[in-house]
Design a protein around this nucleic acid. Structure first.
Lengths: 344, 344
DNA sequence: CAGAAAAATGCAAACGTTTGCAAATTTTTA
DNA sequence: TAAAAATTTGCAAACGTTTGCATTTTTCTG
């Protein structure tokens, strides 16, 4: 065994293009192309011979050329608009977990994932640029942030786009997301059932997902005659802790229930309350949102509203594929579930 | 104002290619190309006229064609090999945080990020495929997993590749990472200084980063005559909790110090110990690794070994850019830092 | 075994840019 | 004002595939 299988010996002309390979195999480039694509139009023996040759020389098809010719890329774009907090998603386990599942789903279907973090304020044209670049066959947007209108604008003209976020009555873009309003209602109901009589919502109500959560909670609270107030809290790791601390310092004595807009905020609350020796759920009940794996690990374990991230990712990809095939799909709203643990 | 700026009216031929635009502007495609690229070879007035026309019609350059012609893509590939735990990185905040920083750094330098999750067992050819696809100008690999040898194999033949992981004496591929061995030593030293006399390392020692952490701890422990044993613990969220629980059930009575291979494992330990009413750090001292934002939020806050993720990401991108320019860069090993909080 | 049908291959034109070089235009110089 | 220089523009050839169509080769049929 000389062991030179697959190794490209220096001095021997490297085989970079399909034409090189064709020369070597004594056929035309077209035949090589068909052989590598495994098409039936080419003789089985020739096909195998060419494929073996390709392997031997470590030949790799130039995807750019292939994409250009076939007018498809095999790439799905994933955009994360950072409208509010620049560092938001970095810390927020939810988005990252969703991204992981998306990567899985897309890989499974033979697509690559092109990730772009977008700062709309600095780049008003981001969506058109992403769509028009020709680098992707479709687009998944994670979180509407404050870009709802901009997304609506392009939705009619660009079919292969699916958004993770909140569903508004009559919106035009295809969205997958949890019923945030219902989730908010479940949260408020639970807090009140657990004895809360004065609730604080900790979160930023600018992003419409959060606004919907708050609105749902408000609806229930006002029906039950329980006061509820929103205390603006951001998601960057450095800000969250500071803001939570300030809120609790100021209102901790008056409230007896906290609805945290996300588990990460909820965890920060738990920490702050413990530091101040305020008992949970005795003095203050706490409920989160997301049900990240970490929510089980807190003490007490965090009561929260579960979002099915894995199902969400699957649905996003599934709808996107159908849209890429030309179908005009409906939005999908997933039901949230109350997970009762130890904090409310 | 008729308000048709930038809107493409139906019925009017859409301007998709540079040639369409050239026709409209009454110049040649070449001139349009130069104008859009902002080259000085084209008359300033013509350039502006063409650029305005492009904006008006919402023209977007086809990147695929551009890439093919220019033989560069503006895309950096990021691969996450999942050698051990398929779901590992989804839960592991560390990788996701690193990914976020990488996305920032790359965006800043005008590069897009193509993410690929790789399962080496199912796809032995992954690295060659990624490199040869022509879809990326360079490659960042997050975590060596169990693919050290395969990465070594291609390192000589493919310059623009940088790896996050552990540095081995005399290795050929360019790596950025924390000095895991030193981190392990710091951890063991701290545990022992805090009174531990019998230590368990909770983690999977197959990935070389973790192996190095364990080795460092072992070195210190044996020097101090403190027994230390590795208890295999995986990083998938479902497995971690179960395995930690089993380990503590079995060894909890005998040990008085835990070195968790990652913060996520450390947090699971804290939870399990609390459930069993084992006091931390009274009966058992615990130290983690990574210093994720969440480590501050536990009760007690987790003592841990800090990795500078942001600096790591910056270095990865910086070295990659230099390699893409043809320079053969050295590896970079970052120093870990002990962060003393409440658990050891 | 001739002719028809089927299978395999080759040819060449795309895909939409970029860019070296030549040609045309404008500006400068003497 | 003519020639030289400088500036703009156009032309056409790449970049490396894929694929419709034509052509050649093989296989089948009567």
């Amino acid at each position: 065994m000389s062991g030179d299988e697959k190794s490209v010996r220096p001095g021997i002309a490297p085989v970079r293009t399909i034409t090189d390979l064709a020369l070597l195999a004594g056929v035309s480039p077209g035949t090589v192309s068909r052989a590598l694509a495994g098409k039936s139009l080419v003789n089985a023996k020739t096909r195998e011979r060419i494929q073996k040759l390709a392997r031997k020389h470590g030949f790799q098809l130039n995807q750019m050329a292939s994409n250009l010719r076939r007018q498809r890329t095999g790439v799905v774009g994933v955009a994360i608009p950072l409208g509010h907090d620049r560092r938001q998603q970095i810390s927020d386990g939810f988005f990252m977990t969703l991204l992981g599942y998306l990567a899985d789903e897309l890989t499974e279907r033979g697509y690559d994932l092109m990730l772009r973090r977008v700062i709309p304020d600095q780049d008003g044209d981001w969506l058109d640029r992403f769509i028009g670049s020709g680098m992707t066959d479709g687009l998944i947007i994670i979180g509407q942030s404050d870009q709802f209108d901009r997304i609506e604008d392009v939705a009619d003209g660009y079919l292969p786009m699916v958004v993770w976020g909140n569903h508004q009555e009559g919106q035009r873009h295809c969205v997958v997301g949890t019923n945030n309003r219902l989730g908010g209602k479940l949260a408020a109901e639970r807090l009140i059932a657990a004895g809360a009589t004065n609730i604080a919502f900790l979160g930023d109500t600018d992003p419409i997902e959060f606004a919907a959560r708050f609105a749902g909670a408000q609806e229930v609270a006002s029906k039950m005659n329980v006061p509820i107030a929103a205390l603006s809290t951001h998601l960057s790791p450095d800000r969250t802790a500071r803001e939570v601390s300030a809120h609790i310092a100021r209102f901790g004595g008056r409230i007896d229930g906290i609805f945290a807009a996300s588990d990460m905020i909820g965890i920060a609350c738990l920490k702050e309350l413990r530091d101040r020796a305020i008992s949970v759920p005795g003095q203050i009940r706490v409920i989160g949102f997301d049900d990240l794996p970490i929510a089980e690990q807190t003490v007490p374990p965090l009561t929260t509203i579960h979002q099915d991230i894995s199902a969400g990712a699957r649905a996003l990809v599934d709808l996107l594929m159908r849209r890429m095939a030309g179908e005009d799909t409906e939005s999908l709203v997933l039901p949230p579930h109350l997970i009762v643990r130890g904090t409310a």
